[in-house]
Amino acid sequence: MVETQTRQPQHRPGSQVPTAWGRVLGLALGVAVLLGLVITAFAWPNLHSAPRGIPVGVVAPPQVAGQLGDRLAAAAGEDAFEISVLADQDAAEQAIRDREVYGAILLGPDGGRMLTATAASPAVASALGQLAANVPAEAGGPLQVTDVVPLPDDDPRGVGLGSAVLPIVIGGIASGALSCLQIVGRGRRLATVLAVAVGGGLVLTLVMQTWFSALAGSFWANAGVLALGICAIGTTIVGLHRFLGTAAIGLVAAVMVLLGNPLSGAMSAPEMLPAGWGALGQVLPPGATATALRSVGWFDGAGSTGAFIVLGCWIAAGLLLTLLPGRSRSTV
């Protein structure tokens, strides 16, 4: 009786089995979905950018202020602006410098003026400028526009501040990832994050303020704000790594890149983003850093308290997670 033997396919030494077509298609589909998420995250806020609850001051008699509010609602939308009546021009300028309002409309018997602050938001200042130009003559228009807090002449559109958000995100992710993957010891990991944050803050400020002239104010204060932004992201990765392992790097990177960066409001303003999303961006490190940097650079720190609290909370959470007993198998 002859036994039939089934011959198994033999592979040469060092050869690899071809990847299954299902895996190839799955990887291609995954990348396509990722690209869809990226374009949605970055394009959607910009495509739906519009004034939403932007605080604007008015210096005018109460009756006139009420009529002006109705005109603004009719021109830009019911919820586009929040009107607050101010006493005089000095009060209006101070409210702008304190970041209580983005601009102010001054109406009087001799005509009207529009006060703006390009440094607070070029997009909002542009929207207010368009409103000033469209005020009819019977209402005192068109209004002359005065920029109370302008941006530097070398960066009149505020591109420098908006461009700083992504490097902050990259610096934070890099500091956390390098600490977790290359450094052993909790204290050494945190020290690595701190060193990268300090160095990154100094380099970014050197480029943006000294070279590009895109920042104003104190060099050291700006560098400190940027360092806090990098540190907030880095310490979060180090803390979560003790519980999630390397998945923490991908998780934090996805949140900061897909949500934190496009929702930061650095190129426009939180009030210009779709409802709710601007507020979300301000409780993430990129948005908080951009707000703090804008306030410290041009407004002597006015309006930065909330941003610093947010950054402090992220850093504190990262430190707390780092100090708690973790589940990671790596030596810490």
Rank of each mutant, 00 (worst) to 15 (best):
E3R: 10
R7Q: 11
Q8W: 05
P9F: 01
H11L: 13
H11T: 10
Q16A: 08
L25Y: 08
L25C: 04
A32F: 10
V38L: 15
F42N: 09
F42G: 08
R52M: 08
G53I: 03
I54V: 15
V58R: 08
V58N: 08
L68Y: 00
R71H: 14
L72W: 11
A75H: 09
S84K: 11
L86G: 12
Q94P: 01
Q94I: 02
D98E: 15
R99Q: 15
E100K: 15
V101G: 01
V101W: 06
A104T: 03
I105N: 00
L106T: 09
L106C: 10
L107C: 13
L107V: 15
G108S: 15
D110R: 08
D110E: 11
A125V: 05
A127Q: 11
A127V: 13
L131W: 13
N134L: 11
A137Y: 02
G140T: 01
L151H: 08
L151Q: 10
D153A: 15
A164V: 03
V165I: 15
P167T: 10
V169Q: 04
A177S: 13
Q182K: 12
R186C: 04
L194H: 00
V196K: 00
G201S: 00
V203L: 14
V207H: 07
Q209F: 09
W211H: 11
S218N: 12
G224A: 06
L228M: 14
G229S: 04
A232M: 01
I233Y: 03
I237F: 01
L240D: 05
A248W: 05
I249Y: 10
A253Y: 02
V257L: 13
P262D: 00
M267F: 15
A269V: 01
M272D: 12
Q282C: 10
G287F: 06
A290G: 10
A292G: 13
W298N: 12
S304F: 01
G312A: 03
C313A: 13
W314H: 10
G318T: 01
L321R: 04
S330L: 14
